[in-house]
């Protein structure tokens, strides 16, 4: 497979076994079979007829092309949100910047929210935590612990109430605080925690769509695990579109990829999420403390996938 075949043009037949082996490797790295197959097929097609460098093996040529393709996928989403810049702009407009965190159960929404709060606060802004998971036991207390540890304000109305309304009240509260205080002392961002839910649970997805459409947040972040094999994100977008309630559908703007510290080189979820959403990975969660939040290191992911 790696023998020197320098010189001649590349044929689809010669490439087939190479591509097959690479796809197997990708699946082991947690790349979804369908996503891996699509990227690899495109790479294969682009190479047919090309002539090999005199001293390269077919395998290394394919690999290089693949690395390039991955890099393209991961960097293609434009406007990788610059959160601080946007918060600052909103502050200039005398309004709080609103972020809603959504995702399936247990992926790390509330933890990521508190990490983002820490990040925002460390950069001189005041985030308000808004407890809109009114379902899961302990969800409100969990946010309260974070609010206390971070010394940031918390807006909550306990359990059982309408999450969309609580978010609206929280945003209005932040707005009022911004108006009454000197500007620099106002609440600059509202971070809205939501209950975990499965993408095919219709009543819960309806409720989430309502929360999003009623409150028109600046940013809807889908929180997904690096551990996950599948990605629920497609279902979330579909539901947000379907239950828009007559308004122009508001979809996911970006992704937070959590538990990146638990997967070693099985980094495929990063590719799956970006490939299926066309949206950027805004943050990567790499642990359970407030500091454990990073930008996606595209080079690292590409290296892990092709290594």
């Amino acid at each position: 497979m790696s023998k020197l075949v320098g010189g001649g043009p590349v044929t689809a037949e010669a490439m087939a076994p190479v591509l097959k082996a690479l796809l197997d490797r990708l699946v082991e790295k947690n790349v979804a079979q369908e996503v891996g197959a699509k990227v690899i097929d495109a790479v294969g097609a682009s190479l047919v007829g090309a002539s090999l460098p005199t001293f390269g093996s077919l395998a290394s040529t394919v690999k290089a092309a693949m690395a390039e393709a991955f890099g393209r996928v991961l960097t293609s989403p434009r406007e990788a949100a610059d959160l601080l810049h946007d918060v600052s702009t909103a502050r200039g407009g005398k309004r709080p910047y609103v972020v809603v965190f959504v995702g399936v159960n247990g992926v790390g929404k509330s933890t990521s929210l508190s990490k983002v709060a820490y990040y925002i606060k460390s950069n001189g802004f005041v985030p308000l935590l808004c407890a809109c998971d009114t379902f899961r036991s302990g969800a409100v207390e969990q946010l309260r612990v974070h609010a206390q540890a971070l010394d940031v304000p918390l807006f909550q109305k306990g359990y059982g109430n309408d999450a969309a309304q609580i978010a609206a009240d929280g945003i209005a509260h932040a707005q009022a605080m911004g108006a009454t205080r000197r500007l620099a002392m106002g609440y600059d961002a509202v971070l809205v925690d939501t209950a975990g839910r499965m993408q095919d649970n219709e009543p819960l997805m309806r409720a989430l769509a309502k929360l999003v459409h009623v409150n028109s947040p600046d940013l809807v972040l889908f929180v997904g695990e690096a551990l996950a094999g599948n990605d629920a994100v497609t279902g979330f977008n579909a539901s947000l579109a379907q239950y828009a309630g007559g308004k122009a559908p508001r979809l996911i703007d970006g992704v937070i990829l959590t538990k990146f510290d638990t997967i070693n080189d099985k980094v495929g979820a990063a590719l799956n999420l970006v490939y299926t959403t066309g949206k950027p990975v805004v943050f990567v969660g790499v642990g359970q403390t407030y500091e454990d939040i990073r930008n996606l290191n595209v080079e690292h992911v590409v290296r892990a996938l092709t290594g």
Binding site: V27, K29, N105, D200, N201, G229, A232, I263, N264, K266
Partner: peptide, 28 residues
Amino acid sequence: GQAAHEQASAFKKKVAVGSVIITKLDGH
């Protein structure tokens, strides 16, 4: 996904795992 095997094995190595419960099977 694919990290399941190595994580599960590691838990088993550290403590005497005797049974398994799989959660969230209502999801997709």
